Amino acid sequence: MTAEAAEDGWPFEDRGVAYGDGLFETVLVRDGRPLLWEEHLARLARGCRGLGIPRPDPARLARPLAEAPEGLSVLKLMLTRGSGGRGYAPPDPPEPRLRWRLAPFMPSPPRWRQGVRVRHCRLRLGIQPALAGIKHLNRLENVLARAEWADADTAEGLLCDSEGRLVEATCMNLFWQRNGLLETPRLDRCGVAGTLRAALLERLPIREVDAFPEALERVEALWLGNSLQGLWPVVRLDDARGRALQRWTLGQDHRRLQAEAHDVLGYPTRLDD
């Protein structure tokens, strides 16, 4: 297996470039220490099993961390099946290609404190259980969904599957409180199972449920979260045309789950001052 910095470029025939035949992870690194590292390794391993790509040695994956600067940065790991094969037929055996990049990172504290405005997207995610949960390289659905709005006031777009069930936001997972209970969409049909989501499911009694968009208009609190940005509370939900469907005033319900998520990532847990 080759492992190189991303600046060295990709061969034209690489299957990740040609077909999205691969996986990636984006890891928050604080002073050289990767956050949620075991969760990232576990998801990458699930993806490797699902796609039939040999799993890299964790020590090889961790090697770029020696170059991490002080403060916050993001390590992006990209693993492809490599080159070869005839058309869509994969090479046997595959020779995976691993590339990485470290970049400075700064989260968005105003969105932690003030909350965000989100909207429903028109695009629907295709149902494919074989790819559900993993972070594969083919993210065209997310790209098309993100192109649905350009206004800076809208932080994210919410996605449903082709049968109308809530799944995720374009690059974050969804959480809400309904009748006092914490819930998140089930991700056994499509969607990315985030590493922050995995950590919160371990720490808290969060139910994985099937739900439709109308349910969000009756929840007490709504959040978006991932392992880079932490948890953003939602203060306004719009339809796909940008018309308001529901508004929330930030309160202790919002801050409790946010504090749990931020404790995992080393972000501030007191945000209501």
Rank of each mutant, 00 (worst) to 15 (best):
S162H: 05
R256I: 15
K135Y: 04
P34G: 07
G266K: 00
A66T: 09
H262L: 14
A5Y: 08
C48K: 06
L265V: 08
S108V: 07
A211H: 06
D273L: 15
A3P: 00
G9S: 12
F175C: 07
P109E: 04
P93T: 14
G22L: 12
R63W: 11
W248H: 02
P110D: 10
A215T: 13
G180R: 11
R81C: 03
R30L: 15
P69F: 10
M106A: 13
D31Y: 11
P93H: 10
P58E: 14
N142A: 12
G71E: 09
T184Y: 11
T269I: 15
A145N: 05
G84A: 11
T170P: 09
R122N: 06
A199M: 02
W100F: 06
A198E: 15
S83C: 15
A6C: 01
L204P: 04
Q246I: 07
V264M: 06
W100N: 01
E168I: 02
P268M: 05
E208Y: 00
D21L: 00
G82N: 05
G20S: 03
P34N: 12
H136D: 15
R197Q: 15
R33H: 13
V74L: 14
A240R: 13
L222W: 00
L222E: 06
W176E: 10
E214K: 10
C121F: 07
A89G: 00
A42T: 11
F12N: 03
F105I: 04
N138E: 11
D14E: 09
I206R: 12
T269S: 15
L131T: 06
A198I: 00
L271T: 13
R113A: 14
A42K: 05
G84S: 08
M1K: 04
G133T: 01
L201M: 14
L271G: 07
H136A: 09
P268G: 02
G115W: 02
H120N: 12
L181S: 13
D161S: 09
T26L: 07
R189D: 09
P11D: 06
N138K: 01
Q128G: 05
D188R: 02
R122L: 13
A244Q: 13
L131P: 01
R101L: 15
G22R: 04
A244S: 15
L216T: 01
W10K: 06
G230Q: 09
A66C: 01
E214A: 15
R46Y: 01
V264K: 08
R189P: 10
H262M: 15
D272R: 09
P54A: 10
G32N: 06
V74D: 02
E168G: 08
P268L: 01
A193H: 14
R63P: 00
L44E: 11
D57Q: 11
E183L: 14
D273F: 10
L271V: 06
A155D: 10
D253E: 13
H40G: 09
L271D: 03
W10Q: 08
Q252W: 01
